[in-house]
Amino acid sequence: MEERKNKGLIDLYSTMNDQDIIVYYKGPFDDVILAEIGNKIRMKAFDSPKAGKRLFAVFMELAQNISLYSYEKNRLESVGKWGVGTLVVYETPTAYVLTSGNMVKNDVLEQIRKKCDEINTLDRESLREMKRRYRSAELDPDHKGGNIGLIQVALKSDAPLDIDARQIDDERSFFTISVSIFKEG
């Protein structure tokens, strides 16, 4: 059994190596880990500084979404404050691709889907307009974020938000979002 587990990990690692993965992380997205990975991405000397800056901004928004909103909470603490999720950054010849994944409640997933679908139909100016509209709207007092993270991610990236989900049970789904940032332009 132990051997099989190790084999699975080796396969996973080999697959990641083949895909030019720069960062792979699974676990709690607490503030220290977020700062650590964020700063590493930021300090890396990218061939295109502009792409590096955008990758950093996108990372920060998606990682904070996991911290604040993942339905799965950290099991290493007695009080599960920080959200758990996963994040991968890999490089292709033309782009950096960042994929984040976390558990969401099924009803929340529907809201996220609707928002992403709307975002993906909009051009740049309309996205800015949507950002201003959401930013000006009142928020619930317990809402910790800005509610405009996904719109900002779309503004910083060059391709539509690529979302995917797999239902785990009646309550939860695993949700992923992939963002591409081209090295040129």
Binding site: F56, R135, G145, G146, I148
Partner: peptide, 12 residues
């Protein structure tokens, strides 16, 4: 030179 979206709402 950088602010996240939570900060941008607070700035507004």
């Amino acid at each position: 030179n950088y602010f996240n979206t939570s900060s941008s709402r607070a700035l507004l």
